[in-house]
């Protein structure tokens, strides 16, 4: 194809997206569109998979059966969400094996929030309420993104995600209304998860390298700073409602903007965690790679069994 022809195709492609048409796997697309989508969708899938680890940590120690079934169901949903997203990603011609390899080798990123430890039961509340809350704010606009398989996966993810946030808030509410020790547990979890949750919505607009192109492709509909403001405005009243204090002395309602002003985010910490120096980066990767490697014999055995069954069937047919 000549350069002229490619330019022409690209112009048509951008026009389709501008008209809100969806792009499907076999349609022509610019190489950059394909690559950007593989990067974002796989990063998203990896986050779901690694995101199971901090919560899996508490399944056996959930304080009641009600909490345990909810947590189990939530972690199972995350596995499901990872699978929806991996298979959506595979429609762009990358294999599941390559995607796993990128995660395990550290080439691909996942959400930095999962590199923080879950040290008390209250963390299950804070993670559901804040981390899933921030994730929902990020994900809802993606239900309308331009790439069909991604948009369809996101519709399902968003539908399932709302229970995650509610069960987390319920845990926090219960603890906040409990004994002084329980309330302290809830406040401590909020103190530790608040800032990482704000960072989770991504670097400030000035620092975000992918925003402009992603906006054009509808991979992003609002900037990181707008999403963060939305998250803060919606979460502060929820904290007040259950009598917890947001750990930010500069947090103040701004009458003019009809929004909360908030304190400085420690971006050094964010970049440190992204670069692999968070409290749990090594631990998470070790658990993930370990699960994959120790499961190899099971995958091989299943394949061998399937082949044997197939051969037996063919023999009978003769």
């Amino acid at each position: 194809m000549s350069e002229e022809q490619i330019k022409n195709l690209e112009a048509q492609f951008e026009a389709r997206i501008a008209r809100d048409e969806k792009i499907e796997p076999k349609d022509w697309m610019p190489e950059k569109y394909r690559k950007t989508h593989i990067r974002q969708m796989s990063q998203h899938a990896h986050s779901e998979i690694v995101g199971m680890l901090p919560e899996g940590n508490w399944i056996t120690r959930a304080p009641s059966l009600r909490r345990k079934v909810a947590l189990l169901a939530k972690v199972q949903d995350e596995a499901g969400h990872g699978l929806y997203l991996y298979s959506a990603c595979e429609t762009l011609g990358v294999s599941r094996d390559e995607l796993y390899e990128q995660l395990h080798s550290g080439k691909a990123k996942y959400s930095s929030i999962f590199n923080y430890p879950t040290v008390t039961w209250a963390d299950m509340g804070a993670v559901g309420w804040l981390v899933d809350g921030a994730a929902i704010i990020n994900q809802v606009p993606l239900c309308n993104t331009s790439y069909g398989p991604y948009a369809r996966a996101m519709v399902r993810v968003c539908k399932e995600e709302s229970f995650h946030q509610r069960q987390g808030f319920e845990i926090m509410m219960k603890l906040a209304n409990g004994t002084p020790e329980q309330k302290e547990l809830a406040q401590d979890a909020l103190n530790r998860w608040w800032w990482p949750s704000l960072m989770m919505l991504g670097p400030t607009d000035a620092e975000s390298i992918h925003t402009e192109q992603s906006m054009k492709w509808k991979l992003k509909r609002k900037s990181n700073d707008d999403l963060r403001q939305q998250f803060i405005d919606q979460t502060v009243p929820q904290a007040e409602l259950i009598g917890l204090t947001i750990p930010d002395p500069d947090l103040k309602w701004n009458e003019e903007r009809q929004s909360y002003d908030f304190g400085e985010i420690n971006w050094d910490e964010f970049w440190q965690v992204v670069k692999g120096h968070g409290p749990m980066n090594k631990e998470r990767m070790k658990a993930r790679v370990g699960a994959w490697e120790e499961g190899e014999w099971v995958r091989d055995a299943a394949m061998a069994h399937a082949e044997k069954k197939q051969a037996r069937k063919q023999k009978q047919a003769i």
């Binding site: 369809r152 299943a302 399937a306 069954k309 197939q310």
Partner: peptide
């Protein structure tokens, strides 16, 4: 959607989950 499985039977079971 889609998923990976060793054979049809496992694909059905995984699809359920």
């Amino acid at each position: 959607g889609s998923l990976h499985a060793a054979d049809a039977e496992m694909a059905l079971e995984n699809a359920r989950d």
